[in-house]
Amino acid sequence: MKAIIFKEMKLNLGSFLIWSLSVGTMGLLCILLYQSMQGEMQQMADAFSDMGAFSDAFGMSTLSIATLTGYFATEVGTVHGLGSAMFAAILAVGIISKEEESHTGEFLMALPVSRIKVIAAKGICVVAALIGFTVVCGAMYALGFAALNEEMPVGDFMKFMGMMLLMNFEIGGICFLVSAFSRKNRTGLGLALVLLCYFYDLIGRVVPDLKDALVLGPYSYVNASEIFSGAETKTAAVIVAVAVGVISYGAAFAVYNRRDLAS
């Protein structure tokens, strides 16, 4: 199983580096741009905080974009939220199905290793990549704060990155299950899932009647403005996320262990 984990990591290393360094660099550049935009920020903050439901949706009624923390939550929160979820989706949705799509399944499955171990190795690879992605991006964002000589709210920052990791785990889990069912790489489906979840959260925050249903979406507990303004995270949302993630990974094992493999 160790050999399969290393092989998967090696095969996915390029994608991991591209995605983590791209998203991390985008976040870092956003942070570094803060000082050059600081003069215009107050006006923007006033305008943004006066947009009713949209201000609430983007968290700008509770956190001023004129502060680095508010700016980070608004800008980097969105970049990391979408970028990390897309990486999780792309990685997980292809990691099992690629064996059948590229006809390597027979080579792998003819080796003395059970399907459970193959799936476990691939699942470990996904989780390790998501943790690595969070660490790389987190380090680059911290570097941005340090470069600007600004104090970072460490507790909120760690909570933000931790919640993002949980969101990545949840979306990765759903895509992992899709991959276990599928005989083709469903990258489009994975990306559509991310955008759908993001859109669901956005609409849920704008339309008051949908607020209670927000906990079902993975973006409900990663709202950076809420996290950095000290708002309490909804326990129900976290429970749903953990349950969806665990059930998805578990179901992927069950599905893959029972079905016929294409040549």
């Binding site: 095969l11 590229s102 027979e106 080579f107 003819a110 080796l111 040549s263």
Partner: peptide
């Protein structure tokens, strides 16, 4: 499968691997 050597009709491997890596990988998994 520990005691079987199987050769599929299509013989596909991971394209990015070198031949020696693919051969060593099969032995490593065993």
């Amino acid at each position: 499968l520990k005691n079987v050597g199987y050769m599929p009709s299509e013989a596909w491997f991971y394209g990015s691997m070198s031949v020696e890596d693919a051969i060593r990988y099969a032995a490593d998994v065993r």
